[in-house]
Amino acid sequence: MWTFYKQLFLTLCIGLLGALIFQLLHIPMPWLLGAIAAVLCVQLFTKMNLQWHKYFRNIGLIVAGYSIGFAFTKEALQDIQQFLSSIIVLNLIFIVLFFAISYLVATRTELDYSTALTCCVPGGMTQIVAFAEEQGNMNMAVITFYQVLRVLLIVGFVPLIITGTGENIVTVDGTFSWRLLALLVICTLAGWLAEKVRIPTGYMLGPVFLLMGLNIAGVEVPKMPLSYLHIAQLLIGIYIGLLLKKEDLHLSKKHVFYAFLSAGLFIGSAYVLSFVMKHLYDLDFRTGFLSIVPGGLDQMGIIAASVHANVTVVTAFQLFRVLIVSIFLVPFVKVFVKKVKT
């Protein structure tokens, strides 16, 4: 047990060092990207045994959920209504793109189509990997690599793309209060309950729904200090950095190439469609891009909160995608796999 705690502390120090280096180099979102880069490099290129507990990730999600829920005011919810048609259309576009990319991967890499579908599902990485493990006859190394690589590329490149647009980001810091601390404790309970009833990304959406309800009820909610969000980025960044293992890299060059290509096609499509959104709704680029790009709800949510995009719009788009993946895509893949087996 003592060895495990030492490994946890070592992992935290490596992630923190990476964040500080990225901050000195003025790289965007250093607390997230620096932690990811440092932990990923140490894990892949050294023999150090790094450990991290999902509880730390959950703490980061609770803080991110608070920050996102804070923005869900009555006015913001009314503004979301104008995007409903675009939310549906854009998700239909990505479903078509998902099937097209899956077919490309299947034909070019000689994977069976069910495995290719599982590799290319745009979102729901944890759910997809768990589903693949249940099947017992899928290539877990390939599926994990495709899913993890997509998350790493999106989380790594999206902040760089956003900050390269030249749009000004105005930050307003909050202050600590006992009321804020009490709300965070209640948010922790809300996240735990949401996770228990199997709400996707429950530790983030629980606080989001809680604060949304408080805002609608007219309860004054204190703004969170930016330092709390930095801590959340660090905790989540270390978790993401540890997703890719050395054993996941022992794949053919063909699989590595098409893993990068499939992720690039998703990101590139989102980049193009974000300009359409900007034209239709006069929406700032970072909000449009974060809304469309098929990352996870938790990753895009914390990036949106960190770069001060319109988190209500981003969360609405990403939440709808989570529902599409959970209600339509995953069940479709399950049915398809069963038919292939029989």
Score class of each variant (00 low, 15 high):
residue 110 E to Y: 15
residue 111 L to S: 10
residue 112 D to N: 14
residue 112 D to K: 11
residue 113 Y to L: 14
residue 113 Y to N: 01
residue 113 Y to H: 04
residue 114 S to C: 13
residue 116 A to P: 08
residue 118 T to R: 06
residue 118 T to P: 09
residue 118 T to C: 13
residue 118 T to D: 08
residue 119 C to W: 10
residue 120 C to N: 15
residue 121 V to G: 03
residue 121 V to L: 12
residue 123 G to T: 05
residue 127 Q to D: 11
residue 129 V to H: 06
residue 129 V to P: 00
residue 129 V to L: 12
residue 130 A to K: 11
residue 130 A to F: 07
residue 131 F to W: 15
residue 135 Q to S: 11
residue 135 Q to P: 00
residue 142 V to L: 06
residue 142 V to S: 10
residue 145 F to R: 00
residue 146 Y to W: 05
residue 146 Y to D: 00
residue 148 V to R: 02
residue 149 L to W: 05
residue 150 R to C: 04
residue 150 R to D: 00
residue 152 L to T: 02
residue 154 I to H: 05
residue 155 V to N: 01
residue 156 G to S: 09
residue 156 G to Q: 01
residue 158 V to E: 03
residue 158 V to M: 07
residue 159 P to N: 01
residue 161 I to H: 01
residue 161 I to F: 04
residue 162 I to K: 01
residue 163 T to G: 06
residue 164 G to A: 12
residue 165 T to K: 11
residue 167 E to T: 04
residue 170 V to D: 13
residue 171 T to H: 15
residue 171 T to Y: 15
residue 171 T to G: 00
residue 172 V to K: 13
residue 173 D to R: 10
residue 174 G to I: 12
residue 174 G to N: 05
residue 174 G to Q: 09
residue 176 F to I: 13
residue 177 S to L: 14
residue 177 S to P: 09
residue 178 W to D: 09
residue 178 W to H: 09
residue 178 W to V: 07
residue 180 L to Q: 09
residue 180 L to Y: 08
residue 181 L to A: 14
residue 181 L to V: 14
residue 185 V to E: 13
residue 186 I to D: 03
residue 188 T to D: 04
residue 189 L to Y: 11
residue 189 L to E: 03
residue 190 A to F: 14
residue 190 A to N: 07
residue 193 L to W: 14
residue 196 K to H: 12
residue 197 V to S: 04
residue 197 V to K: 00
residue 199 I to K: 02
residue 201 T to W: 07
residue 202 G to C: 03
residue 203 Y to R: 01
residue 204 M to Q: 07
residue 205 L to V: 14
residue 207 P to Y: 10
residue 208 V to K: 03
residue 209 F to I: 11
residue 210 L to P: 00
residue 210 L to A: 05
residue 210 L to Q: 02
residue 210 L to V: 00
residue 211 L to M: 08
residue 212 M to G: 12
residue 213 G to A: 06
residue 216 I to S: 01
residue 216 I to D: 00
residue 216 I to R: 02
residue 218 G to D: 03
residue 219 V to A: 05
residue 220 E to I: 10
residue 221 V to K: 05
residue 222 P to C: 08
residue 222 P to Q: 08
residue 223 K to R: 13
residue 225 P to D: 08
residue 225 P to L: 12
residue 226 L to D: 07
residue 227 S to Q: 14
residue 227 S to V: 14
residue 227 S to I: 15
